[in-house]
Every structure is written in structure tokens, then in C-alpha cells.
Nucleic acid binder design. Structure first.
Length: 780
RNA sequence: GCCGGGGUGGCGAAAUUGGCAAACGCAAGGGACUUAAAAUCCCUUGGGAGCAAUCCCUUGCGGGUUCGAUCCCCGCCCCCGGCACCA
């Protein structure tokens, strides 16, 4: 009964594990231990995601080489994780920086390359002219370099991409397949939005310099397209621009190119733009419309060109007003003629009809959409299409601390894959891993490393000097865990079949789109290549919540960061684990307060007392209080379902209640105490182990079996039900379970309180919910 | 702006998704034990009125549906997270 219990492996920072990590790992570990107690063979691996910009930046800051920094950090993490008490299988530990690991990351790149899913193209990157380095988007703060404050510019570099967009439809479709994916809804919606499917049409406008293709989600508004806008990078800009307009257009394009990507996309949303002087024909009206260039149109989305419908699009409207372009209304709400001038942008909401749209006028918007697409297809001027917001995955990093991309560039042969037997392409340990004036990637300064013969023709060639994105490392680590000792292959097919897909994956929702989407994509490609027997790697995924301190997110600048080590030393790992699991619903997180730790600790102390009482008594038997038996069945049920649904806080509450019940009747019956210890074990493994031994349990408590409850015994024979008059509870009566309405009603009518409120009147209506409540309605 | 998650005692939170609101825990107050303190144990603790039995009010705000709403519907307000010129 294999059960793969996965949690997101940490990035080994110099600061050590923070409470968020502890919370994440404890919750996942509790689940793994629970499954083990239920009789599953649980595989719970751990590893380190140690490549990447974070480590590199820290190394630059402290002047320590990452190759020495990382092992130190990992050693610290290992000891913290051990103290936490995770059920980790250390035999399968891995680090992405280990050549025995990244050899296969490079192999993975080659599989994608062979499958035609990896390609090279020029793309914009953020470039700091002062530090002479490429920056990640997160390192650009309002257009300036995070480190030196210099204005960041855009550069176009040749980079490697993965064709994740080829999989957009499948990535989307599987989200709705409950057999393949049982995921937190918040995560699947995040992925849906990220993939961003839009249905619409591609339409061709005949232009002065050849046809211009646009994508629109609203072909029904075609008659309202009064101008067109090209992205500054659009290839047709040069050709369509008239001589008179050329200086202005060129200046505009230069200015757009100088803006960094972040400012360009999220900065001020002014609708700047210049006319090209050229025109194109609106295929519906046959009227010429002016063609403009503006950077609010992005080259990366759709066709890089739009038809502008200012009457019904907010951005086009703002642009038209600013540049005094015509606005023609083609949608009207019920009762409107459409002749009224438009002062603000309107979208075609439900109930809108087409107006000013020739033969399509008067059609409802939805039907107009379909009819216009049909017409475009007949005329050969367009077709219905689907667009995705998802972009291809750029995996090139002009950095040092990552796996070198296994490609050799040859003047004659072009890019050539490094032969598999030559893998890994080792990352050389260089002293000058910091960026400086000399070039693009630090590796590009090391001729002795990048100058190699072409594997195909033998002529002098050079290695790719970029390294790959860390997200590629983490996109397949769960496959490697199972085969860490194998030197000659990335993973063993038999083990893939037996252990995968992952039965439970728990992690933070900050990875809802990148890591979790990339991993799915990589699995799909490998599946299509016949290398994996499944296409969805994580059958069940749950996003855990976040821990805040005093109502706000923990951060160094706020000074409210909780250092877990202190708490472990003071309260013990088990109290700490229990507290973390008790402070709120696991999928929501909660507020960390120092005072709260006392509760779980006191609870464990009381259990300990109970165990000692059992030890001191030699005779195993003790009379068991009748009410306790019902409580026992209820507790087993509540704890079991709580663990299943990750409602750890209520599972712990149930255990506390059970303890209180035992103490109330002074019961320390050994079998019950043993069962409680078993149910406690996922949360407090060290403590439970000790108790188990003292109670005379055989072997480890984790070899015990999980108690089973009897549904029939979870209910009392007698129930107390509230009696309401006009919906307000006025009394409570105790009746046998399952009592008939007549019995309960008779008992209620005998009740003094009730007769007082009835005041001699007969109830007009009686509502009886068996074992729940009785409501007598007399009217006012 | 769009998407997602929330708003319940002094605090963290429960509530079988329409049936006794506040389980469990923290903190606070009172008491027991102690020379004293800590620890432990017992009691009280949503707000208001009352000597009391008891009554009235209370799940962000305003409406609605219902015998009955923390839960469903409509209209708002606020907080957290993500995405954001996506045509």
C-alpha cells in the first residue's frame, strides 16, 4: 500500500528554517504519520532546492562562494528538520546542486530539446547598465536597479524557451478532471487565470503595407473599430510608417525600448502613442482607419496588434479621447438607440444589441459575435480562435549559480545538444562569479570552460554560458527522490509505476502558478515521450495557510520574525508541533502568539500524568464508565475525520475533550489511554513513542494500528432537544433517541415553561426535526 | 480594476453547511494548597436588566426568503493574498 507523501522542499537559506517552514513541514508530516498508522507504506522524502539567485545574491553580499555556503546551510537545515521530528527518509535526500542531480536536470532539457519543445529566440530582459547584469523582474524597483539604483533598460538577448503554450489546453482541461487532480480550489483557479484562455477571432485588416492581423475577444464590435494600434516592436511598423511620420515613430520606439519591462507593464498607464501615417481597411465597413503605434499594446500577446473599439473598451476609449480619434458606438442597451454620444467606455454587457453594424444591426451581442465570425470565415478575412495569456517559459538565466544549459553553439552546425554520455556539464568553480563589466554571464568570461570542439563536426565551438532557471530543478525533484541512488538513469520506471502519481502534496500557494504549473508541464512532456506512465504528477494537492505574527506578515523589517529554535528549546518539539497545528485551520494558517504554547504543553503534561497512573496500576482491567465509551467512539471519529480533512485544530480539540472527559470520571483504563496515545502520535511523535513504551506497547507506536469507531456507538441513548416557541428556545427536554413526534410534543406540552409561553393557545404549526429540535408556532 | 480567501467574545477559533451561536485553547478575575511565589486543582467569564427564577440583545452593515439564517438570496463596507494596459 504505497503512499507518496510529498512536501515542497526548502531553499536552504543562511537564516535557517523559519516558522512558516515548520508549519508547512509539520502539517505534511502529521498527514504522513497518520497514513502510516492507517497501514500505508509511506514514502516521505526531503531535499534542498539550493540553486538560484537567492543563494547567489547572498554569496555576493557576504563574499562567500556559494559552493561553500550551501553545504553549510544544508547541514544547519538538516539538524533543524531532525529536531522537528519529521518522518523523513534521509536515505533519499537530494540537493539540486549535486552534479548527480543536475546531470539529470540537463538530461531533462535535452529530452525537451529533442521533442521540439525547447527553442531559442530573442527576448527582452532587464539590464542594469551600471552593474552590467541581467536582473530578474523582482529586482527592479519602480524602474531602478535594486542594488545600485540605476535606471534599468531593456535588452534583447538570445534565450531558451520551453513550449508550455503547446500544452495550454491540456493543462487547463485536466484541472477539471477529478480523477487526475484533487487540488485546492484556490490553486486551480490561480492556474486557470494564469493560463488565461480567451475565445475570440483573428481578423485581417488590409493595410498600406500588407495585411495586419489582430486578435479580439469581441468580433461583434468590429464595426466600431475606428483605428488600429501596433506594438512598438511590431515588424510592420517600419513598412507602414510614412516618411513624414518616421522621425516621431522612431523616437517613440526608442523611448519604449529604453523603458524596463516592469515599468512598461505595470507603470503609469498613460495612453501615449504616435500615428504612423499609414491606414488599413476595416473589413466590415470598408473604411480606412488610421494605424498608430502605442506601448499599451504588447508584442507578446495575441498578434501584437489590435483593432481599437473606443466606444466599448476602456483603454481604447482613453486613447481615443487623448488623441482625438473617432468613437463609434456599436452596442446599445435595451431601450437605447445607440445614437447618443458616448462619454465613457462601455462593455457589451448582457442584453446589449448591435447598432451601426450594417446587416448585423439589431442582433443580440452573443449572436452578433457568432454571425460576424461566420461571415469573416466565408469572406476569408478572419476566423474564430482561442488565445492564452500564458507565455512560453523562458528558462535562460544569465547567472552563475545554476546548471549550465547543455548546448554547444557551433558556427557551422548551430546549437548542438551535448551528448548524453558527456553529462553532466559541470558548473566550474570560479572565483569571479560576481557580475562585472566584462559580459553577460560570469561563465562567459571563462574561455577554458566554454571553448570546446563541436560534438558534431569537431570544429572549435563554445558552450552555452547561460544556466537554467531554478524552477526547472524543482519541476522534477519528486521523480528523483525515488531513485537517488541510481547513477545511470534519472528515475526507475518500475518505481514510477508503483509510487506515482504523488498521493499527497502539501505546499504554499505562492507556488500555485509557477512551480506547480511547470511540474505539470514537464510531466506531460515526459509522458508524451513514453518516459512516464502518467501525465498529472500530483493527484492530491493542498495549499496550507500562512502564519502571521500579531496580525501582520512576519518580516525582518517589522522585527516580528519568530525564530523556531528558541521555542523548540523551551517547549520541546512536540508542544511546538501541536501548537502550530492547533492555532488555526491548516489551510488558512493563523496568528502566532507566545502565550498560546502553554495550552498544548499543559495538555501533554496531563496525558503524561494519565500514563503514569496506568503504569502504577498493575491490573489491566478497570471498570469503564458508560458515558466514556460513547465519548471514545466520538473522539476516534472526530480525530480521524479531522486528520483526513487537514482540520488539525479540531482533531486536537477532540483529543483535549476526551482527556477532560477521562479526568472528569477519574478513568485511566489502559486500552483507552493507549488509543489516545496512538491518535496523538502524528502530532507529538516523540512523546507518544515514550508513552507507548511505558504502557507496554509492542515495538514502535507507529506500528500500532489506528483505532476504529462504531458509528452506532457514537450516539447517546437519550438526547436533550431544545423546544422553541415561535423560533425561540424556551426549554429543553430529554427524550429517548429517535422518539416520535407525538411523544416529544406531549412531553413538551407538559413542560411548565412551554405552557407559560403558549399561554393557553394551540400551536398552529409544529416543526419537529428528529433528535434535533421541536418548534411550536402559535403566531403573534 | 479582476480573481481568490476572510470578517463570530478581551484573543486564536468551533458550529454535523438551514436547527441550542461561542466547542477546544489562551488571557483575565475569584478561591484552594503554600510562610510566600511558581506549578497544580476548583469556580466565573459575549453584552445588558434583575435579589432571583428569568428576560432582552448579539456572528462587519442594510434588506429579503424561511417556523427558524453564522450558513441561502440581493445591495453595501472593511481586511488579507494573488494577478494586473491580455485586446
Amino acid at each position: 500500500r504505497p503512499f507518496y507523501n510529498l512536501m515542497m522542499f526548502p531553499y536552504p537559506s543562511a537564516e535557517g528554517l523559519h516558522v512558516g517552514n515548520f508549519f508547512a513541514f509539520t502539517g505534511a508530516d502529521v498527514y504522513g504519520r497518520f497514513k502510516r498508522l492507517q497501514g500505508y507504506q509511506v514514502f516521505e522524502p526531503i531535499g534542498f532546492d539550493a540553486f538560484g539567485i537567492h543563494s547567489e545574491n547572498f554569496a555576493i553580499k557576504t563574499g562567500t562562494h556559494p559552493a561553500r555556503l550551501i553545504p553549510r546551510n544544508i547541514a544547519n537545515f538538516r539538524s533543524q528538520l531532525t529536531r522537528l521530528g519529521g518522518m523523513f527518509d534521509w536515505r533519499h535526500e537530494l540537493s539540486t546542486t549535486d552534479p548527480a542531480y543536475y546531470r539529470w536536470t540537463q538530461w531533462l532539457f535535452l529530452q525537451l530539446y529533442r521533442a521540439g519543445k525547447a527553442y531559442r529566440k530573442k527576448a527582452a530582459v532587464n539590464w542594469c547598465p551600471n552593474d552590467k547584469t541581467v536582473l530578474a523582474n523582482e529586482q527592479v524597483i519602480t524602474g531602478a536597479c535594486e542594488r545600485c539604483g540605476a535606471q534599468v533598460e531593456q535588452r534583447f538577448l538570445e534565450q531558451w524557451f520551453f513550449r508550455i503554450t503547446d500544452y495550454a489546453e491540456r493543462l487547463l482541461a485536466n484541472l477539471d478532471d477529478p480523477v487526475k487532480m484533487d487540488w485546492s480550489a484556490s490553486t486551480t483557479t490561480a492556474q486557470r487565470n494564469w493560463i488565461g484562455r480567451s475565445e475570440g477571432a483573428e481578423i485581417e485588416f488590409a493595410g498600406d503595407a500588407g495585411p495586419i492581423r489582430v486578435f479580439t475577444t469581441r468580433p461583434d464590435t468590429l464595426f466600431g473599430a475606428t483605428f488600429m494600434v501596433l506594438a512598438p516592436e511590431h515588424p510592420l511598423v517600419d513598412r507602414i510608417t510614412t516618411e513624414a511620420a518616421r522621425p516621431a515613430v522612431q523616437a517613440y520606439r526608442r523611448a519604449a525600448a529604453a523603458k524596463d519591462i516592469v515599468t512598461r507593464k505595470v507603470g503609469e498607464k498613460d495612453k501615449s502613442g504616435v500615428p504612423t501615417g499609414g491606414f488599413a481597411l476595416n473589413p466590415a465597413t470598408n473604411q480606412p482607419v488610421p494605424v498608430w503605434v502605442a506601448d499599451y499594446v504588447l508584442m507578446e500577446y495575441g498578434t501584437g496588434a489590435i483593432m481599437a473599439v473606443p466606444a466599448h473598451d476602456e483603454r481604447d476609449f482613453a486613447f481615443a479621447v487623448m488623441h482625438q480619434l473617432p468613437i463609434v458606438r456599436v452596442l446599445a442597451r435595451p431601450g437605447e438607440t445607440g445614437a447618443t454620444p458616448v462619454h465613457q467606455a462601455e462593455t457589451g454587457e448582457t442584453g446589449c444589441r448591435l447598432v451601426n453594424s450594417g446587416p448585423f444591426s439589431e442582433l443580440p451581442a452573443g449572436e452578433g459575435f457568432r454571425r460576424i465570425v461566420d461571415w469573416l470565415e466565408q469572406e476569408g478575412k478572419g476566423k474564430g480562435t482561442v488565445q492564452y495569456r500564458l507565455y512560453d517559459w523562458c528558462i535562460s538565466r544569465q547567472r552563475y549559480w545554476g546548471p549550465p544549459i547543455p548546448i554547444i553553439n557551433c558556427r557551422g552546425c548551430g546549437p548542438v545538444a551535448v551528448p548524453e554520455q558527456d553529462l553532466p556539464v559541470l558548473l566550474p568553480e570560479i572565483a569571479d562569479f560576481q557580475p562585472d563589466d566584462s559580459g553577460i554571464s560570469p561563465l562567459a568570461r571563462h574561455k577554458e570552460w566554454f571553448e570546446v570542439p563541436c560534438p558534431r563536426c569537431g570544429q572549435p565551438a563554445h558552450r552555452e554560458t547561460d544556466v537554467s532557471d531554478t524552477f526547472l530543478d524543482s519541476a522534477w525533484y519528486y521523480l528523483r527522490y525515488l531513485s537517488t541512488e541510481l547513477g545511470n538513469r534519472p528515475f526507475h520506471p518500475d518505481r514510477m509505476k508503483r509510487w506515482l502519481p504523488v498521493a499527497s502534496y502539501i505546499g504554499g500557494n505562492e507556488h500555485a502558478v509557477l512551480h506547480l504549473l511547470y511540474s505539470r508541464f514537464i510531466a506531460m512532456v515526459l509522458c508524451d515521450q513514453g518516459l512516464l506512465p502518467f501525465e498529472e504528477p500530483f493527484r492530491r494537492f493542498r495549499a496550507h495557510g500562512t502564519i502571521v505574527k500579531d496580525g501582520s506578515k512576519m518580516s525582518k523589517s517589522r522585527g516580528n520574525v519568530v525564530i523556531p529554535d528558541r521555542y523548540l528549546a523551551r517547549w520541546g518539539a512536540d508542544s511546538f508541533r501541536m501548537y502550530l497545528m492547533f492555532l488555526g485551520p491548516y489551510e488558512e494558517g493563523g496568528d502566532f502568539r507566545d502565550e498560546g504554547l502553554a495550552g498544548p504543553r499543559r495538555f501533554l503534561d496531563k496525558v503524561w500524568e494519565l500514563v503514569q497512573q496506568c503504569e502504577q496500576r498493575t491490573s489491566a482491567g478497570q471498570e469503564v464508565h458508560q458515558g466514556i465509551v460513547v465519548k471514545w467512539h466520538q473522539t476516534v471519529k472526530r480525530v480521524t475525520t479531522g486528520l483526513k480533512t487537514l482540520s488539525y485544530n479540531t482533531a486536537i480539540a477532540a483529543l483535549m475533550e476526551f482527556l477532560n472527559a477521562l479526568r472528569a470520571v477519574n478513568c485511566s483504563e489502559r486500552r483507552m489511554v493507549k488509543d489516545m496515545v496512538v491518535m496523538l502520535a502524528p502530532f507529538a511523535p516523540h512523546f507518544a513513542e515514550e508513552c507507548w513504551e511505558r504502557l507496554g506497547g509492542a515495538g514502535s507506536v507507529f506500528d500500532a494500528s489506528w483505532p476504529a469507531w462504531d458509528e452506532a456507538l457514537t450516539v447517546e441513548h437519550k438526547v436533550e432537544i431544545p423546544v422553541q416557541v415561535n423560533g425561540k428556545t424556551r426549554s429543553k427536554i430529554t427524550v429517548p433517541r429517535g422518539a416520535a413526534e407525538s411523544t416529544v410534543l406531549a412531553a413538551a406540552l407538559r413542560d411548565r415553561q412551554i405552557s407559560k409561553f403558549l399561554d393557553g393557545k394551540q400551536p398552529k404549526k409544529v416543526i419537529y426535526v428528529k433528535d434535533r429540535l421541536l418548534n411550536l408556532v402559535v403566531g403573534s
